[in-house]
């Protein structure tokens, strides 16, 4: 089935079996293997990509559902020559061990900070009508869809915090 997805700014025409997930289309058809397949059931977050700027689990979506959508993967976030500040922060803070969850963590973190900027609430948001106090509890709750089996969580929090700045 034909579908066109704008991947990292470039329109990519695909002809895929309807069963192909967005994750498999990115990895197997387009060769963008930065997005990882961990659980393949939306439980681990390793496959997190941005669709029209919003983070989703690419393993729980079909490629054919994304005709015309703009998808950003870790390959579109930064390059070896020109790292994104969030990637630099993950290196500086040693926010990974094996690195398998890292692309998902970084994509998720960037979109998560936009959600905070847009004042979207989480279950840690005690005052639903005021501006969000972006505490570490908020940060951890909002990243709970990304599992790190090496348990680098303190460093991941530090990396994201170094980009986001201290709570007001």
């Amino acid at each position: 089935m034909r579908t066109t997805i704008i991947v990292n700014g470039e329109a990519r025409a695909l002809d895929v079996d309807p069963r192909t997930t967005l994750l498999d289309a990115l990895r197997e058809t387009l060769g963008l293997t930065g997005s990882k397949k961990g659980c393949d059931h939306g439980q681990c977050g390793a496959c997190t990509v941005l669709v029209n700027g919003v983070r989703i689990n690419s393993c729980l979506s079909l490629a054919v559902m994304h005709d015309g959508d703009a998808v950003t993967t870790i390959e579109g976030i930064g390059t070896v020559e020109k790292l994104h500040p969030m990637q630099v922060a993950f290196l500086t803070e040693d926010a990974f061990q094996c690195g398998y969850c890292t692309p998902g963590q970084i994509c998720s973190a960037l979109a998560m900070l936009q959600e905070v900027a847009d004042n979207w609430p989480s279950q840690e948001t005690t005052d639903l009508t005021g501006p969000i106090a972006f505490t570490d509890d908020e940060l951890r709750e909002r990243m709970s869809g990304n599992i790190c089996r090496c348990s680098a969580y303190p460093q991941i929090v530090a990396a994201i915090r170094s980009v986001a700045g201290e709570p007001a």
Partner: peptide, 23 residues
Amino acid sequence: IRSRWPVLTQAIVAGGSGQLRNK
């Protein structure tokens, strides 16, 4: 919803993850 039906916001953010709620 946050100001008049806050129980709905609280229930939704108690479920799933950010990625799942976005979809």
